[in-house]
Amino acid sequence: MAIYRDEAVVLRTHKLGEADRICTLLTRNNGKVRAVAKGVRKVGSKFGARLEPFMVADIQFYEGRTLDTISQAETLGSYGAPIVADYALYTTATAMVEAADRLTETDPAQRQYLLLVGALRSLSRGEHSPTLTLDSYLLRALSIAGWAPSFQDCARCGRPGPHARVMVQVGGAVCSDCAPQGAAILDDATRELLIALLAGAWDLTEDVPEQVQKRASGIVAAYAQWHLDRSLRSLDHLDGSQAHTVAAVPQSTPPSVPEPKATA
């Protein structure tokens, strides 16, 4: 049996049989790997908490026919404990790993790995607000996956911005010629925040009013939802004030009223 070694972040785990778990890991060099951790749920397991979600570890794998097996794990980044001690951080980190799980496959994804580890580390240290950390992570993870949004120039025709409308289906801001009827409004403050989050320009994200943050989060959630086919479950369970509701994005026209039925 072949042995290989890689750094990995634990995305999620599933119980297997009596005392084992299947861990879904995003590795530095081998893309996403599903591997069995034997006996991890038992007292005195050699793995302890090293294979819990949000943990980063140096792992040795045995290649298997269907699933690989984890034979050793050494902690590199212990982000689980600080994250789990704060409920808002926990729900935020869960949304991140869910997105990472959906955006990666078995082919190498080193940029996704580094982005996720960086985001979890930043979150565990409380460097920025969980909401902003998540929104920045989602925009950049989607960009790496090939869905980079444009919030300055028109996402459809490329006309230089700024523009006052946004359409996630098209890929971001849209000019007045490209904006369909009813496209959501993109005000200056929200646009600037989205551009800063996409670029990781954290100094520009400080002191942004909550209303603006909410509108940006709504656009990020809608953008992620559109590109991931179905929404991230974790976004529905974010802690109280961080709710990523698409409804937070103002529409330029009131919700359409059903047309009266023609009488025969």
Binding site: S45, G48, R50, E52
Partner: peptide
């Protein structure tokens, strides 16, 4: 208690 584990696997004394 076994960190990372299930409560049901903890022995009675622990």
């Amino acid at each position: 208690l076994p960190v990372g584990g299930d409560l049901e696997y903890a022995d009675e004394i622990t």
